[in-house]
Amino acid sequence: MRFADIRPGPVLVGVSHIVWRLPGRPATKMAEFAHTELGSGHDMLEACELTPRPEMRPLYFLHALDELRHSRMFRERARALAIERSRTQAVLDDSGYLHSHGIRGSDPLFTELGELDFLAFVWLHEQRGAAQFGIYAGLMDEDPASREMFARIEKDERFHIAYSRKELERLAAQGQASAVSAAVWRIRWRRFKQGWLRFSRLIGDTMAKLWLTVIYVVGITPFALIAKLTEREQGGLVPAEVDDRPAAQRALEQL
């Protein structure tokens, strides 16, 4: 069982270099980081609340406080950059919000994964975060304030990697080595799966939009004409429609 930390690959470094130089990018990227850090902060707070192992609670708590602080730092930096480079703040004003209002609703990450997998997740995820921040810190030649911020954050990330690795190593040493390494692999597989699903969803949405566009352009004209002729957008108070269905039947139907 190896617990070697990941190093950033050349592709990630190269892409980051290009992306960072796009105009307005630093501010929006910082705002994005603010979102992700806020999300991990909440995940960690939930883990802190839910873990059955009291000795893990303070670690998760400190970790959460770090992430929430990072989120604020990123948000403030994003705002400062946006003002400095006089770009609109429309996005930035909202960076306190999480936007992923899905349809499904979801369980806490901790509940979904369980303690062991959650630790493996933290360890892998934090490494990725640290690597990414490391790259960005190296890109900040003209922006000492951001560079300093990234450096401070990276230091915290080291702590997150260290405690999760220590905990995994401890569990491995207690005779759970195979369970730990299985957990690490499960998280890697989960990440791959999620990437694939995102890809699948992207293609699906694009295809669906294409079909919808075809329907709209080719098929919808006659209906639109009828609608324009027959639908009156009548204002004012109109009598409420009388629904004859008995309440019990009415309740069962979606119309």
């Binding site: 999480l98 992923s100 499904r104 609703g105 979801s106």
Partner: peptide, 10 residues
């Protein structure tokens, strides 16, 4: 913890 979350209230 998502302000005005509109997802199904699982």
């Amino acid at each position: 913890r998502q302000k005005q979350d509109s997802a199904l209230p699982v």
